[in-house]
Simulated assay, not measured.
Amino acid sequence: MFPIRDSINHHGPALVTRLLIAMNVAVFFWQVSLGPQGFQWVVYQYGFIPKAFFADPGGQFWHIFTSMFMHGGFEHILGNMWFLWVFGPAVEARLGTGRYLTVYVLAGIGAALTQAFFLPHSTVPMIGASGAISGVLGAYFVLFPRAWVLTLLWPLPPIFFWLPAALLIGYWVLIQVLYGLLGLPGVAWWAHVGGFAVGYLLTLVLRPRRPYKDEPFWYREYGF
């Protein structure tokens, strides 16, 4: 199932979300410009490797931040940036710039550390913004449980239908946990779970306490 858009009519300018997407895309095209060997080199040079982190936490901690802006291919970055575009603007408008960035960055850190905890001896570089974006999903789950998401059901022929955001995101989390328990290779499943948990918990603390109706800048009625 692939999200197309949510049911909130207006999110505001989403400047931070746009900036994050632009930064990720710029870094990815820089990776591609290096050629296949250069691409592989920067993945190992700037990716987050759990075994290396536990051998030298202080020296390797910055790799968490560099890994958050790198991707392994076009499908990888397109999927991540699309999820950020669908769910990020509403969270950004609701939390504001500072709190939104706090959730994003800390969720990315939490995601990397969670993956390292479950696979401490892994020498495979972890790259991608999916851990941080999982935190955005956690925030969306807290802030907009009654929103709906237009969803594309694969495979072909395509079928479009509306799902409650809480149901769609809940299903997504369940899949991450299940695949993590099964140990399926190729994706940092536990990073997704850890990022979601950090985003969820942080948003419970950081979300504005005022009623929605007192925030006309971002709030609009849900509608299709």
Rank of each mutant, 00 (worst) to 15 (best):
M1A: 11
I4L: 15
I4Y: 12
S7P: 04
N9K: 11
N9C: 08
A14C: 09
L15T: 15
L20R: 04
M23Q: 09
V27P: 06
F28P: 05
F29C: 11
Q31E: 14
Q37E: 08
F39N: 04
V43D: 03
Y44I: 07
Y46N: 05
Y46I: 04
G47M: 01
F48D: 00
F48P: 02
I49A: 00
K51Y: 04
A52F: 11
A52K: 04
G58C: 00
G59V: 01
H63Y: 09
I64W: 03
F65L: 14
S67P: 05
S67W: 07
S67T: 08
M68T: 03
F69R: 01
F69S: 00
M70C: 13
M70A: 09
G73Y: 11
G73T: 09
H76M: 10
F83E: 03
G88I: 01
A90R: 00
E92A: 12
T97H: 07
Y104Q: 03
G108W: 06
I109Y: 10
G110Q: 00
A112K: 00
L113G: 05
L113S: 04
T114F: 00
F118V: 06
L119Q: 12
T123N: 05
P125L: 00
G128H: 01
A132D: 08
L137Q: 08
A139I: 10
V142M: 05
V142F: 11
F144I: 03
F144R: 03
W154M: 13
P157Y: 10
P157W: 14
I159F: 12
L168D: 07
Y171A: 15
I175V: 15
V177Q: 05
G180E: 03
L181W: 03
V187N: 09
A188D: 06
A188V: 06
W189E: 05
A191D: 01
G194Y: 05
F196Y: 06
G199P: 06
Y200A: 01
Y200D: 01
L201D: 00
T203A: 05
T203I: 09
T203L: 11
T203H: 07
L206V: 11
L206A: 07
R209Q: 15
Y212I: 13
E215M: 13
E215W: 08
F217N: 15
Y219A: 12
Y219L: 14
Y222V: 07
Y222A: 06
F224H: 12
F224N: 12
